[in-house]
Simulated scan of single mutants.
Amino acid sequence: MRTKTPIAPLSRAELVSLSNDIRLACMRISRRVRFESDRELPPHHFSVLARLEDTARTNSELADIERVSAPSMKRTTTALVAAGYVSRADDPTDGRQVILSLTAEGRKALRRIRRHRDEWMLSRFEHLTDEERELLQRAADVLAKVASE
C-alpha cells in the first residue's frame, strides 16, 4: 500500500502565483468558449437570454443582475427583440415597466449556443488522458467550491 507524501503548505508568494495562474486559465477558457464556439450572438446577448430562461424580467432587473447601466441593457434587449429572441409585454401593475421574456426562438438559440459551447469543450477534452480528465474533475469540484465562497 502506497502512502501519500504530505504536501508542504504553499508560501504566500506561491499562493499568489497559483491564484493568478488559475484566474488567467479560467478567463482564457471562458473567453475562448464564448467567442470561438458560437458567433451567432455577442456574449452579453447570450447572458441576457440565459437570465430570461426561467423567469421574465424587466430591463432594470436585468441591468442590476448583469451590472450594466439601464441604457446599455435597453440597447441589448432592443436588439434581442428585433432578432426575435425576446418579447416585450406591458407590466400589468406598472405602466412604466416592460416585461421581457424569451420567445420560442430565443429558447432554441440558447440550446443551440450551449450545445456549441459543450462541443467546443468536448473537442478539447477528447485529446486528454484519463488521468488528466480525472484531475480536471477534481479541479472542477474545487473551483466550484472557490466560486461559491
Rank of each mutant, 00 (worst) to 15 (best):
residue 18 L to C: 00
residue 80 L to H: 02
residue 133 R to V: 01
residue 66 E to C: 12
residue 133 R to F: 15
residue 147 A to G: 05
residue 140 A to Q: 05
residue 127 H to I: 09
residue 119 E to F: 05
residue 41 L to A: 01
residue 83 A to V: 01
residue 126 E to L: 14
residue 80 L to K: 03
residue 26 C to I: 14
residue 110 L to T: 04
residue 116 H to R: 05
residue 49 L to D: 08
residue 120 W to S: 14
residue 19 S to E: 10
residue 50 A to W: 10
residue 100 L to A: 00
residue 41 L to R: 03
residue 144 A to I: 10
residue 80 L to E: 10
residue 31 R to H: 11
residue 55 T to Y: 01
residue 36 E to W: 06
residue 65 I to A: 10
residue 112 R to S: 11
residue 132 E to G: 06
residue 23 R to W: 00
residue 30 S to M: 10
residue 109 A to K: 05
residue 105 E to P: 03
residue 10 L to V: 03
residue 116 H to E: 13
residue 25 A to N: 05
residue 14 E to T: 01
residue 18 L to Y: 00
residue 43 P to D: 02
residue 100 L to N: 03
residue 46 F to L: 13
residue 115 R to M: 14
residue 93 T to F: 07
residue 75 R to G: 10
residue 68 V to S: 07
residue 34 R to A: 13
residue 47 S to P: 07
residue 64 D to L: 02
residue 104 A to S: 09
residue 127 H to K: 14
residue 73 M to D: 02
residue 128 L to E: 11
residue 35 F to I: 04
residue 127 H to P: 00
residue 84 G to D: 00
residue 17 S to F: 01
residue 133 R to E: 06
residue 85 Y to H: 07
residue 85 Y to I: 00
residue 36 E to R: 04
residue 119 E to T: 07
residue 102 L to Q: 04
residue 113 I to G: 11
residue 137 Q to V: 02
residue 76 T to G: 12
residue 57 R to W: 09
residue 103 T to I: 02
residue 49 L to K: 06
residue 28 R to P: 07
residue 114 R to Y: 15
residue 6 P to V: 09
residue 134 E to S: 08
residue 52 L to R: 04
residue 88 R to T: 05
residue 75 R to P: 08
